[in-house]
Nucleic acid binder design. Sequence first.
DNA 1: GATATAAATGAAAAACACTTTCAATACGGA
DNA 2: TCCGTATTGAAAGTGTTTTTCATTTATATC
Lengths: 148, 148
Amino acid sequence: MTTDFDTLAQQLRDEGHKLTQPRRAILHALLDSSKPLSPAEIQERGQTYYADLGLVTVYRTLELMADIGIARAVHLADHCHGYALATPGHTHHVVCKHCHGVTEIVGCELGAFLASVADRTGYTITGHWLEISGICPTCQQNLPESKH
Amino acid sequence: MTTDFDTLAQQLRDEGHKLTQPRRAILHALLDSSKPLSPAEIQERGQTYYADLGLVTVYRTLELMADIGIARAVHLADHCHGYALATPGHTHHVVCKHCHGVTEIVGCELGAFLASVADRTGYTITGHWLEISGICPTCQQNLPESKH
DNA sequence: GATATAAATGAAAAACACTTTCAATACGGA
DNA sequence: TCCGTATTGAAAGTGTTTTTCATTTATATC
Ligand SMILES: [Mn+2]
Ligand SMILES: [Mn+2]
Ligand SMILES: [Zn+2]
Ligand SMILES: [Zn+2]
């Protein structure tokens, strides 16, 4: 159940990537932390494992690890890059990975889930983001073949 | 039900803010669009309504409108600022608005909701973000008073 | 263990996104 | 119409992410 270093390292190898010192350092940094880290934080912590670790490599490696499924990007509340009018009633969005079109989902059915989160964590919940990604109907038609 | 220009403009006035040409232009730009726009896109489109619209004003106005509840920030998939290991089983996070601590939520209870989204929109759903914000138990104790 | 080769790296610079400062302007009440 | 203040845009500053490219490193093969 616990993801350990060797398992993650092997996943890299299995996907045909090299197991380099920078990548080892980044894995260790992520394993050490109980919370999401910014690229700069990952560089800083990773340098205790590999002193020359560069920031550019951190960016590249995180992208690679996210592609493979080893790491995941977590949006922090700052630096939001899009705005929409706040339609009454609270909505969410589905974004097409291919054409980047956005479809609004009216209605939010997270009430019960959020209540249970409040229960389990002790947090007072004040807001949430939900964004769904997929392929829109139009793009499904135009690209019935490839995968990436 | 439809949010029209006059209603939104009046909301600005009601909150004690001036109804300026830049703000009008930004409202029009947002009303025109069916999807979330970046600040730069809003400036560009807003300039068809007010040619001198500056980007700084766009940032300030969006923040104001979000405070009032007229606009909302929507995270687009780019420019993520944090990474975490993809723990097995798919998790979400609650982020404390005060201390920025992060608590992981194990388990995802969105299956039924996502299925209904697929039904309603025709999208093939390939992934989702859910992030919850609130005040953690510790911060609730340390700040039982103020609001902002 | 040495060698060959492509993948991966870090430095530097460029591109981009966002914020702060401040003098000039425009809104809205009187 | 006039006035006081909220609001504005230019400019400069800060921090983040990407691109480019010469060098280095991992690994497969010998
Ligand atoms: Mn919701
Ligand atoms: Mn989920
Ligand atoms: Zn599409
Ligand atoms: Zn907290």
